[in-house]
Design a protein around this nucleic acid. Structure first.
Lengths: 136, 136
DNA sequence: CGAAACTTATACTATAATAGTATCAGTTGC
DNA sequence: GCAACTGATACTATTATAGTATAAGTTTCG
């Protein structure tokens, strides 16, 4: 079971770099520092920019910068941005009614677990990760 | 994010059926009752049999039966059987040393979350699901 | 102006996991 | 012997993930 995909992982690492640097950084520099394929990172940065987590500037002095305070960027939001919502509610909305009671019983338990996971992800922010990083 | 694959889901549902029936059931009957593709379920049953959760008997009077008490079958074990172990430890064992501290910081948090999830899955058994089912 | 360093936008590919499907062989009991 | 079952494989289709490639536009500096 994989909790985070590479995209999410890279996004978080890029955000951490930006938070540490406190200014504008080019995708190329971030990619080199984090060993992330450049084009892949560029696409990730675009997604982050469109969602308002970073600002970008074109041109030779351009690059990427944080658009929000590190403590205002929650891992739960980045996760949702790149991996979509937690979607265990399928049986409730997509099919008429859960035609199998056993499945519903299971889903009830899964929903409980997912809420727990989500709550934990919501408490993790770029700021809290940064704190861990500096403490280590 | 998907916690359970179809295989795990089907396996649990099959085990619940068997626990309710308290005897031998053919894969065909289970598949029909749970709307599971027959060949797919048969492969799942084989895996369950090889792992010792069910016994099978060939021939016209054959079928599948539980080999363990419902309360001795934990969802965590079924999950592991079909989806493998929780594998967030990659950076510790597969690569020499985590060459990126930010990643390690993240993984540390992920491990914590995975332990929580695993603990919850360990507390769910076929018996506890059956109880939910009868209470509903 | 024009090159260098940057982002934007999109299209393409490779690999692996998931979810099934299809068969043939062997077993059991009437 | 045939109907209903399991065992064991091999195959396919779809999707997600993880990239790669490239053409086009922007900004600054010399």
């Amino acid at each position: 079971m994989k909790l985070l995909t590479k995209k999410t992982d890279y996004a978080v690492r890029a955000l951490l770099r930006l938070a540490q640097h406190d200014g504008r950084l080019s995708a190329r520099r971030i990619a080199a520092a984090e060993h992330i394929p450049l084009q892949f990172l560029r696409a990730i940065v675009q997604t982050l920019a469109q969602a308002g987590y970073v600002t970008t500037r074109e041109g030779v002095t351009g690059g990427v910068a944080l658009a929000r305070a590190p403590r205002a960027i929650r891992l739960a939001d980045i996760l949702q941005l790149f991996q979509g919502t937690l979607d265990m509610t399928e049986c409730l909305f997509r099919k008429k009614v859960c035609r199998n009671r056993a499945t519903c019983v299971l889903r009830h338990r899964l929903l409980d677990i997912e809420h727990t996971v989500l709550a934990k992800f919501q408490r993790i922010t770029i700021a809290s990760l940064l704190k861990d990083l500096n403490a280590a």
